[in-house]
Design a protein around this nucleic acid. Structure first.
Lengths: 335, 335
DNA sequence: CTCCATTCCGGTAACGTTCTCGCTATTAAA
DNA sequence: TTTAATAGCGAGAACGTTACCGGAATGGAG
């Protein structure tokens, strides 16, 4: 093993001073002469010294590491959130380690079970499970957790999400204003706050305009394109067809559009479609897809900022941040 | 600080045995009685013991951590590769920490400079810079590096990539067989192996069929949708227009298609378009996009497997793995 | 000239784990 | 029965860093 890297001992030996002084010099300037501090820094650079995070972690009880737990990264929303997280983490000298649950409750549990809590300063999570005791346990053990997007209701900690309720209101109201009257909503699984809020927003608009509300026009399923297709096929079997579809997700909306196209139904003129996310595909598909833009990047940044506050200030009071969405009108809702 | 977590000392104290025995019992079964081993495991579970990776890392000189360095994750290819990496890492009890370079050479350098090499067992990288001395330094320091996709020519280590040459051959030949004769190629930046190989594959087919080769029909630029649009606008200014476009990337192909649509040029019948990647958008855009499917997930898995071999076997002989691509015919190349 | 406060530095014990070595039983061989 | 081998365990150092505390040197006030 020739790859023994240089340590503060080496620096100390070189300068004939103690490791304690070197350690102080490298961090804060407390109790150390400006001149010796400079000598230490110079020598550190010269020897190409890199701090050993394991040792620091052991001694200080804190690492430069935060974990991200989320369902997957192969979609626009999550990959953009991560990019935002990474931006803030990088600026503050934190590393991020990634845990993918594949949207499986089991796997999420197993990940949390086997987490080396001692090598993590905090956790950013978008959960895939309805229960949240495993996260509560983490918090009780003293490691801060911040939720984003798919948040856990019961846990008291900081949470960051888009304004799902008002986003849904805007989407539905946009359909109303464009002359659609029989509006269906295809959405994610029950139990998710995100799902509930969007349904509430949708219903509130129907109520406001005294438009028809039908049980069978609210379809709960997954977030994938396939489920969007399935949902529409299901909807079109009902006796009275809706003339507009609000999908809780652009991928679902795309699936819906594909299903409509297959049946020769004209999107826009016959049935309006609006999505949620502002995934780039919404500008690529034809007709282009109206949608509610989510501030994914900012959600990532904000989540990370909050987590860092939890980490640095021991008794930081949890904040729930709701970032606004924005309606983007395109062709799919034009009559 | 009430969050002192349980250590092997606690287990040892509970069972009235030494920490050394506990340590051995928790790992291999070497030098420890089956019965005591069981008692230790039971007690560990009962106390909810989680190993401290920092301590392990310090003592063993190895962490359970591998780093991934890549340009970004907000596209289908890279996010899928990461998912593959993560799969293998998870199976083997490794964590992955993510470093995004934003496709900036500067940032990549800064990341490598500040890397805490001691907290990393190995590195998986898709580089954004033409030079590669910084990676060579890492390898010299004894930390294994495996390249994927955007590999560094000069560094001797394991590399995993798709078969860019033959993929390009298949794409070009597919255009030839569908009756296109004047075939242009819009591709990524010069200097990338991946770019070079695809150009070579493209040229080899033109040569084979003795089809026209024009300097101005090979356009080097970026990988984005915008650059695809720009490339086509540039191409259409040339005196003799091509009747087919081979794009080195689906996003570029989409940009190209958008540009063609804007000019009212019929895709397929007038100008054929084929991409590379098999991004899901290729089935969503209309007409659907023919493309060369890359084995992104398998590239991730294979890269990680190789890295783990480098990590465990000190003198593992580097392997260069080339995974096959696959032609997918869709509407954009149908006359 | 004495005394005290301040500045700066060093020694040393932690942090949680693994590793090396040596010791004690126990078993097998003679 | 004696001896050698082996299985199982413990003591203590080490990994690189930080935290705590004590002490030497310096300067200024009296």
């Amino acid at each position: 093993m020739q790859n023994r890297s240089v340590t503060i001992k080496d620096i100390a030996k070189m300068l004939n001073i103690s490791v304690a002084t070197v350690s102080r010099a490298l961090r804060d300037t407390y109790d150390v002469n400006a001149e010796t501090r400079q000598k230490v820094l110079d020598m550190a650079r010269q020897l190409n010294y890199k701090p050993n995070f394991n040792a620091t972690g052991l001694a200080k009880g804190s690492t430069h590491n935060i974990g991200i737990v989320l369902p997957f990264i192969t979609n626009y929303y999550f990959s953009t959130v991560i990019t935002g997280i990474q931006e803030i983490a990088y600026e503050n000298g934190f590393n991020i380690t990634l845990y993918l649950t594949n949207d499986s409750e089991e796997r999420e549990l197993s990940i949390i079970e086997n987490l080396s809590v001692s090598s993590l300063d905090g956790l950013l999570v978008s959960t895939s499970s309805l229960s949240s005791v495993h996260f509560q346990e983490l918090i009780d053990m003293g490691i801060p957790v911040v939720f984003f997007d798919r948040v856990a209701k019961e846990v008291v900690t900081s949470k960051v999400m888009q304004d799902d309720f008002n986003g849904a209101v805007e989407a539905t109201e946009h359909l109303v204003k464009n002359g659609y009257r029989n509006i269906a909503h295809i959405t994610g699984p029950r139990g998710l706050i995100l799902t509930e809020k969007r349904v509430q927003g949708y219903l509130s608009v129907l109520e406001k305009y005294q438009y028809p509300v039908r049980e069978e026009w609210i379809v709960y399923s997954g977030f994938s394109q396939e489920s969007g297709e399935g949902d529409v096929n299901h909807l079109l079997q009902s006796a009275d067809m809706p003339d507009a579809i609000f999908a809780s997700n652009d991928r679902k909306a795309v699936g819906a559009m594909q299903a409509l196209k297959k049946r020769g139904i004209a999107i826009g003129s016959e049935i309006g479609v609006i999505g949620f996310t502002n995934d780039p595909i919404s500008t690529i598909i034809s007709p282009t897809l109206s949608t509610i833009a989510e501030p994914a990047f900012d959600i990532g940044k904000k989540s990370c900022e909050l987590l860092l506050k939890h980490i640095t200030k021991k008794n930081f009071i949890p904040e729930e941040v709701i970032l606004p969405c924005r309606l983007i009108e395109r062709e799919s809702t034009r009559r």
